[in-house]
C-alpha cells in the first residue's frame, strides 16, 4: 500500500521536473584555455532569464542542440550569426551587443560575479 503511494508521489514530483527542464544556470567553459588568453572567465548562461522571454523551440534544436556537448559555441561563431549571435539575438539591435564582455563572461572587470 505504501509502495503504491510512493510510486504515485514519484510521478507527481519527477514528471513536472523533467518536462519543465528546470535549468537555472549553465556554466560554459569548454574553451577555458582560450578564454584565459583573452582575459575573461567562463560564461554563466542564465537559462531562467531566457525562458521568461522565449519558448523552448525558439532556440532548441535549431540554434542550440539540447545536448550540451554538441554546441561548439565560440565568439567567432557568435560574430558570424550563430549560437548567441543569431539573428534577433545578441548580434542584432534586439538584445545587448556581443562586445559587452562583462554581461556574460565572469572574471572580467565590471562583471557581476
Amino acid at each position: 500500500m505504501a509502495k503504491r503511494y510512493f510510486i504515485a508521489l514519484f510521478f507527481v514530483l519527477a514528471v513536472p521536473a523533467v518536462s519543465f527542464g528546470v535549468q537555472a544556470e549553465i556554466k560554459l567553459d569548454d574553451k577555458i584555455a582560450s578564454m584565459h588568453k583573452a582575459g575573461v572567465g567562463p560564461v554563466i548562461f542564465p537559462h531562467a532569464k531566457h525562458e521568461k522571454v522565449y519558448k523552448c523551440n525558439d532556440c532548441h534544436p535549431k540554434i542550440f542542440s539540447e545536448k550540451r556537448t554538441e554546441n561548439n559555441i565560440s565568439m567567432k561563431f557568435n560574430m558570424e550569426g550563430k549560437y548567441c549571435g543569431s539573428a534577433n539575438c545578441h548580434n542584432s539591435p534586439k538584445a545587448f551587443a556581443l562586445f559587452e564582455c562583462a554581461r556574460c563572461h565572469t572574471g572580467v572587470p565590471g562583471a557581476k560575479k
Binding site: 503504491r4 510510486i7 504515485a8 510521478f11 507527481v12 514528471v15 513536472p16 518536462s19 519543465f20
Partner: peptide, 20 residues
C-alpha cells in the same frame, strides 16, 4: 496502482503543458 500512476501522469503532464 498503475491507474493512480497514470492519473497523476496525466494531471501533471497537463499542468506542465498548459502553463508554458
Amino acid at each position: 496502482s498503475s491507474k493512480v500512476a497514470l492519473l497523476s501522469l496525466l494531471v501533471f503532464f497537463g499542468f506542465a503543458v498548459t502553463t508554458p
